[in-house]
Amino acid sequence: MAGNPRRMRPLRNLYAKIAAIPMVLTALVVFVGGTLWTVTYSFTNSKLLPKLNFVGLDQYERLWSNSLWLTSIQNLMIFGVLSLVLTITMGFLLAVLMDQKIRFEDTFRTIMLYPFALSFIVTGLVWQWLLNPELGIQEFVRGLGFTGFEFDPLSNPDTVLYGLLIAGLWQGTGFVMCIMLAGLRGIDEDIWKAVRVDGIPRWKTYVFVVIPMMRPVFITTLVLVASGIIKLYDLVVAQTSGGPGNASQVPAMYVYRYMFTAQNLGQGFAASTMMLLSVLIVLIPWAYLEFGGKKNG
């Protein structure tokens, strides 16, 4: 009665484990390891090369007393809040319009979504040109006879963020619209029948029935858009290069400057650690809602 030898457990799924090596390395070495490495070196006074010469919170003190960093943070907050509120409201409203059984839905969606296929560099450069004060939209409207017309956001430190915002919205709202539309289509068709039987006006249905039902979609969108905003870099580089002066600097540019051009690595690491912290502020409540809530229901 010869039985097969009891196979060693680690050898089961051997190929799966080999196949997962890239994932394991990426997760552990790059994502976890890289993050810990940067956080650790943010407490050192590394200049041109990383050195383990700990100086406590020195880099962070210097960071928070650097006006360039403060401007960057302030810019990101203003841009971030406006961009979040506007992309999500506009995205939802457009999705509602698209969900009215309109004709040419595919055409409209193609038009609204194509900017999302373009890079931020292309987006930034196009809008830089459109907002050109001598030859762009301002000049066009003046040419129509409104000679006093002013529309030159990019030259003015107070308005440059709005110039970036116009471009950012142009690039990203189509994407949010698509997610929202998928969310709307996911709502049970019987809801619409029930609402019609009850005679509830359409706007009330959206506000009191549809939006609460789409809560998970809104939260996901919020997290996606927010984590994208924190990474904001290419658009600013292309459209304003951080100018005029330093009026449109953002944290990602600050990090790049200190890591790769100003040769002050410690400062760059401290700044990127602060960026990580801000992402965690967005991410942890979401993860809690998303995964902590599942256990209860």
């Binding site: 089961r12 799924n13 190929y15 799966a16 484990k17 196949a19 997962a20 994932m23 394991v24 990426t26 997760a27 552990l28 790059v30 994502f31 976890v32 390891g33 890289g34 993050t35 490495w37 940067t38 956080v39 070196y41 990383p50 997290v223 984590s227 924190i230 990474k231 944290p251 990602a252 990090v255 790049y256 890591m259 690595l265 760059g268 690491f269 700044a271 990127s272 650690t273 960026m275 990580l276 992402v279 991410l283 993860a287």
Partner: peptide, 29 residues
């Protein structure tokens, strides 16, 4: 199809990692 012990943990790290700003991993890479 071939889940092994810990495979879901690495996947979770991977997904959370995609939210980490690239800036923090730029230099280690």
């Amino acid at each position: 199809n071939w889940r092994f012990k810990g495979s879901d943990i690495f996947f979770t790290i991977l997904i959370f990692g995609s939210f980490i700003p690239y800036q923090i991993m730029l230099y280690p890479i």
